[in-house]
Simulated assay, not measured.
Amino acid sequence: MDKDIAYLLKVFCTVVEAGSLASAAERLDVQAPAISKALARLEILLGNRLLHRSTRALQLTDAGTLLYQEGMTHLLSLGELLDRVRGQNHQLSGSLNITATPAVGEQLITPLLVDFSIRYPQLQINLLCTNEQIRLPSQSVDMAIRSSRQLEDSSLTSQLLLNVRRLVVASPAYLQQAGTPRSPAQLAEHACLHFYHQGILDAWDYENGDEVGTVTTQSRIRVNSYASLKTLCLAGRGVARLFEYQVADELANGKLVKVAAQTNWGHQSLHAVYHGKLAQSVKLQAFVTAFRQRYGE
């Protein structure tokens, strides 16, 4: 077997994930010709064409699809094995790559990393905050923190981390000016602030005792950032639907107040999603344990 097969496999899987040779070269910090040479060498070694290349896109052959699916699993297993061997000295090392939305990454994960990084000083931690859902499995991401249990690949698994309540809130100044809505239906007559990502979230589901319904809200301001949404709400620009962890401080100091406080506005379930081969990963489970301990799930 070619002694560099692990490197060639890594290059191939990175090309598939990145979608182009140039993007793969950037991720691996090498020149594009080196990527092309590695792919050619791998195809010669295996006696099979793995990719159809054009100026517009890369398309996997049947052999390439098989190699990517199985190869990714073996690369992850190899990485996990090396981490376990390094961990024999009882110190987590290597790298832990996490992706999450900006709201979750900034307000839940970043505070957690303060103590976590002190506890595991030899562990390199990389946090990518983005509203885009990065496809897994991936060499660049060990774990994704998501609000959906839907898995795009049968090789993936998920663990429930936390259930967080949605709240509808407004500033005292807004309520003094516009009046306080006492029921979900009355929100249709108020200025509301909308979050949008792949669609405008203007239909707010709720439960009031035995009553289950949806109120369609109206807004002149729409943003794709929960931080911006909260800033606008604090400034009195309207009513916002936010998660409890996002407004806990503002509720405590009175800068925001709950609207229709007896109404159940639903919740979000946060899951850790990762490849099944990493289920026994010491560094992943250390992070999951730390998250649950901090946030009480």
Score class of each variant (00 low, 15 high):
236 G>L: 06
220 R>A: 15
233 C>T: 10
189 E>N: 14
237 R>I: 01
226 Y>F: 13
239 V>I: 15
203 A>E: 10
214 T>V: 15
242 L>N: 01
246 Q>G: 02
221 I>E: 12
248 A>E: 06
217 T>L: 15
220 R>V: 14
239 V>G: 03
184 P>T: 03
231 T>P: 00
205 D>R: 12
189 E>C: 09
249 D>R: 13
191 A>M: 09
213 G>Q: 03
219 S>H: 06
187 L>V: 06
234 L>M: 07
223 V>Y: 06
223 V>T: 15
209 G>K: 03
224 N>Y: 02
224 N>K: 11
198 Q>Y: 08
212 V>C: 10
202 D>G: 06
240 A>R: 03
211 E>I: 11
227 A>C: 07
214 T>A: 11
227 A>P: 12
241 R>H: 00
196 Y>L: 10
249 D>V: 11
236 G>Y: 02
201 L>G: 05
207 E>I: 06
190 H>K: 15
200 I>E: 06
238 G>F: 00
237 R>N: 09
229 L>A: 13
196 Y>M: 14
210 D>V: 11
249 D>F: 02
204 W>Y: 11
222 R>G: 12
248 A>M: 02
212 V>F: 06
235 A>R: 11
196 Y>P: 02
235 A>F: 02
196 Y>I: 07
204 W>R: 04
229 L>S: 12
189 E>H: 11
218 Q>F: 13
227 A>T: 13
217 T>V: 15
245 Y>H: 10
248 A>Q: 09
200 I>T: 12
190 H>M: 15
237 R>Q: 14
218 Q>L: 14
248 A>Y: 00
217 T>Y: 07
216 T>Q: 11
192 C>Q: 11
242 L>M: 09
246 Q>M: 09
225 S>A: 03
194 H>L: 12
243 F>D: 01
245 Y>V: 05
192 C>W: 08
189 E>K: 12
211 E>S: 07
196 Y>W: 04
232 L>P: 01
